[in-house]
């Protein structure tokens, strides 16, 4: 923990298990291509990147909070609220305004999470479980028991028309967000402060890092990513509902941990998250093509999360010890 080398943590695939992670993705893709008829087609690659666009943005925001050793449980509800605000404010003609309104609301939520966290010094899990529930209630109030529609289908097709064969504007936007986050963490002072805070907040603070500013940035970015994901999804579907983000928190947490972000903070990189999201997306896409029901996907996603958190924790350390009999003395 004390040997802080930013470069080691920010390799393209991130962390020590980078090669393993990339291998897992390749194995998953190859296996599904062989087992499932339509998995390897360009059409399915496009569909895969469409789900990547949604999950990727949400996971990226969540991963930033995990990098500082905290956790934003409100991302799932924020996706629903973001989508609902976009369509309610935007109507048919002002969707961009709707997106801005959703973004403004997300900034307020992120500020609230970060400032209450910095003020009360409670676990961020406690504060964001509150915002998760409050935002869930707010989403139901916004939707008023209905599904909100928009008549503007042009914006949706602008976002979803395929580009370069397998991408769309929506998935390219998500990839751009990953590139921006990579740049932020690798080349800016703020990025280094984020990793330092995650490694050891007290030490970072003692060396002059404003940890409050770091918390504000990551929680605002996390809410913004979720809200943007919700806006884009609602425009692309031309509908928004209060249940839109239901299983996203689960998937995003799994993807981030598979991507090598440690729950303890300070460890992991954007590249790893990218691979983690792709692994989870490929898994769900493949299961879907195999005809798995929503219930069995829920079951599978929960199981995946449980296994990865177990490996992230004491069980993983124990397995590592088995592999390497001489324990590391300096930690």
């Amino acid at each position: 923990m004390t040997t802080f080398t930013a470069s080691a943590r920010l390799r393209l695939v991130g962390g020590t298990g980078g090669a393993l992670r990339l291998g897992l993705l390749i194995v998953a893709v190859v296996l599904f291509s062989l087992l499932v008829d339509n998995f390897g087609t360009p059409r399915n690659a496009y569909a895969l990147f469409q789900s990547f666009a949604l999950l990727g943005l949400v996971t990226l925001g969540l991963a930033l909070t995990m990098l500082v050793g905290e956790f934003d449980l409100s991302v799932g509800s924020m996706v629903a609220v973001g989508g609902l605000i976009t369509l309610k404010v935007g109507g048919a003609d002002h969707l961009l305004l709707g997106m801005l309104a959703a973004a403004a609301f997300a900034i307020v939520v992120g500020l609230f999470n970060a400032l209450v966290f910095s003020w009360l010094r409670l676990s961020s899990l406690v504060i964001t479980v509150g915002s998760m529930i409050a935002l869930g209630g707010f989403a139901y109030w916004l939707a008023d028991g209905r599904v909100i529609n928009t008549d503007n289908f042009d914006a949706g097709s602008l976002l979803d028309d395929s580009m370069l064969g397998i991408f769309s504007l929506r998935s390219l936007l998500t990839i751009a967000a990953f590139v921006a986050a990579f740049g932020l963490l690798k080349y800016t002072r703020l990025g280094r402060n984020i990793l330092a805070t995650g490694s050891r907040a007290a030490a970072a603070k003692a060396s002059g890092v404003s940890t409050t500013a770091v918390y504000v940035v990551v929680f605002v970015l996390s809410a913004l990513c979720a809200s943007l994901a919700g806006s884009l999804l609602s425009i692309s579907l031309a509908t928004a509902s209060a249940t839109m983000g239901n299983n996203l928190l689960l998937q995003a947490a799994s993807a981030a941990i598979i991507g090598g972000i440690a729950l303890s903070g300070g460890i992991g990189g954007v590249g790893g998250v990218l691979v983690g999201v792709l692994i989870l997306t490929a898994l769900n896409n493949g299961l879907g093509l195999l005809g798995a029901s929503a219930a069995s996907m829920l079951f599978a996603n929960g199981l995946v999360l449980l296994v990865v958190v177990l490996l992230d924790g004491r069980v993983g350390q124990w397995l590592k010890k088995l592999r390497r009999p001489a324990p590391l003395k300096s930690f």
């Binding site: 689960l250 829920l298 199981l303 999360l305 449980l306 958190v309 924790g313």
Partner: peptide, 13 residues
């Protein structure tokens, strides 16, 4: 394991 994450996972299972 972190109790919140573990119980969310079990909830979905």
């Amino acid at each position: 394991v972190n109790p919140i994450i573990a119980t969310i996972a079990v909830a979905s299972i």
